[in-house]
Computed example of a mutant assay.
Amino acid sequence: MLAKLTAKNQLTLPRAVTNAVGSAEYFEVEVKDGRIILTPVRIQRSDAVRAKLAELGLQEQDIADAVSWARKPRK
Rank of each mutant, 00 (worst) to 15 (best):
T18L: 00
L2S: 12
R45G: 11
S46Y: 09
V67M: 01
V49I: 15
A70H: 07
I37N: 04
A54N: 15
E60I: 12
Q61K: 12
K75C: 02
R42G: 04
E55N: 10
D33V: 04
Y26M: 04
A66S: 11
L11G: 05
I37R: 02
G57T: 02
R15S: 11
P14K: 03
L53N: 07
A48K: 11
E55I: 05
T6E: 06
E30C: 01
I63R: 03
P14I: 01
R42N: 10
A3I: 07
V21W: 06
T6N: 08
R74E: 05
T39Q: 00
L53C: 05
Q61H: 09
D65T: 06
G57D: 05
L58N: 08
R42L: 08
E30N: 06
K72D: 03
I36K: 06
E60Y: 11
A16Q: 13
I36F: 05
E28R: 07
T6A: 07
R35W: 08
A51H: 12
I43W: 09
W69K: 10
R15P: 07
A54E: 14
S23W: 10
P73N: 06
K75P: 15
Y26G: 03
S46K: 12
Q44W: 04
L53D: 03
K72H: 08
K75N: 11
V49R: 10
I63V: 15
G57F: 05
E55F: 12
A16H: 07
G22F: 02
K75W: 08
R50V: 01
K8S: 15
S68K: 11
V21E: 00
G34I: 06
S68A: 15
K4A: 11
N19W: 04
N9S: 13
R45T: 11
Q61A: 12
L2T: 12
E28Y: 03
A66P: 05
A16L: 12
L11D: 06
E25K: 14
K52P: 00
G57H: 01
F27P: 00
M1G: 13
S23A: 11
V21Q: 04
V31Y: 07
P40A: 01
E60P: 08
V41T: 02
A7H: 12
L53P: 00
Y26S: 08
L13H: 09
T39K: 08
G34K: 06
T18W: 00
L38A: 03
Q44V: 06
L38Q: 00
R45V: 11
T6L: 02
L38P: 00
A64C: 04
L11E: 05
L2P: 09
V41R: 02
A20S: 08
Q10P: 03
G22E: 05
L56M: 12
A24D: 01
S23Y: 14
E30Y: 00
T12V: 13
G57R: 01
E30T: 13
D65E: 12
A51Q: 14
A48V: 13
E60M: 13
A7F: 09
E28A: 09
R74Q: 09
I36S: 01
M1A: 14
D33Y: 06
L58C: 13
T6D: 12
D33P: 03
T12Y: 10
K52F: 11
A70F: 10
R74A: 08
T12E: 14
V31R: 10
T18R: 03
L58M: 14
G22I: 03
E25F: 08
V67P: 01
D33E: 15
R50N: 11
V29H: 00
